[in-house]
Design a protein around this nucleic acid. Structure first.
Length: 285
DNA sequence: GCCAAAATACGTCAAAAGTG
DNA sequence: CACTTTTGACGTATTTTGGC
């Protein structure tokens, strides 16, 4: 089996899982396996793999939520502990809900494409077209942050990077604070510090800042300029891709946290419903 | 310990989205 | 509208995991 095939499967799975998670939550479906399946796919990036576990929930103040909201501890698969307060509150725009719900039906498209020869090429293009882009992770989370002060804002971390020496940098993973419908909670946990490779913000050795554009005459100079521009573009995109992946991870973490919270919320609501049923239903005995 | 499979990270390209 | 930024897709390299 080719690695790429697996890769594709994994990425598609992750993408769909995110959407399916939401749908099953909204449908009131069984969501117990969400945290497990997620963590099974998403191990820690730094090689410190953890055993995938379900989000553990312990209710500290097991009141019914009326008046003073109870505090619920949610143990995330990643080991983070989350404090959830006030389970029953007004709904809030979800992180998960992108403005346009995009349920991708790749299989359907493949069916309509009868030409087997150009299938690969067309398929690739069509997939790109159909996977119309949602708003950026930055935008999604920043919009949420305007809804609640506890939602982490995705910002440039340049100030952080600029401060670090250009060799091996010790990076402390930033503490995330999320705002949920149930109130603020922090995803703290003792995150280890990682040794990361030096950011490649410096220009490659071969790249020299060009002379003024007007001074380029010979074809060789033009070629050099083109090469320089290309290398600069590649370098910038390299950094952008890194940053994008970082934001994506943060976004996924946020989703995972939210799923855990919503599971707790759902569980409590079910319990409350059962309690009310018991109270209201006439004794048959 | 070896090895294959799985998972993860990275660089690049292309195209959509954002910006001035 | 030109230019920049962002991100999905892809291919590849590296690391981790699990079976033997």
């Amino acid at each position: 089996m080719s690695k790429c095939g697996r890769k594709k499967y994994f990425k598609t799975n992750l993408r769909q899982m995110t959407m399916e998670t939401v749908e099953s939550q909204q449908d009131g479906g069984v969501t117990n396996s969400v945290a497990e399946s997620k963590s099974a796919h998403m191990q820690t990036q730094t090689g410190q793999n953890s055993v995938p576990t379900l989000a553990q929930v312990s209710v500290a103040g097991s009141g019914t939520g009326r008046g003073s909201p109870a505090v619920t501890l949610v143990q995330l698969p990643s080991g983070q502990t989350v404090h959830v307060r006030g389970v029953i509150q007004t709904p809030q725009p979800s992180v998960i809900q992108s403005p346009q719900i995009q349920t991708v039906q790749v299989a359907t498209i493949a069916e309509t494409d009868e030409s087997a020869e150009s299938e690969d090429v067309i398929d690739s293009h069509k997939r790109r077209e159909i996977l119309s882009r949602r708003p950026s992770y930055r935008k999604i989370l920043n919009e949420l942050s305007s809804d609640g002060p506890g939602v982490p804002k995705i910002e440039e971390e340049k100030s952080e990077e600029e401060r670090t020496p250009p060799h091996i940098a010790t990076m402390a993973v930033p503490t995330s604070i999320y705002q949920t419908s149930t109130g603020q909670y922090t995803a703290t946990g003792d995150m280890p510090t990682y040794q990361i490779r030096a950011p490649t913000t410096a220009l490659p050795q071969g790249v020299v800042m060009a002379a003024s554009p007007g001074s380029l005459h010979s074809p060789q100079q033009l070629a050099e300029e083109a090469t320089r521009k290309r290398e600069l573009r590649l370098m910038k995109n390299r950094e952008a891709a890194k940053e994008c992946r970082r934001r994506k991870k943060e976004y996924v973490k946020c989703l995972e946290s939210r799923v855990a919270v919503l599971e707790v919320q759902n569980k409590k609501l079910i319990e409350e419903l059962e309690t009310l049923k018991d109270i209201c239903s006439p004794k048959t005995d």
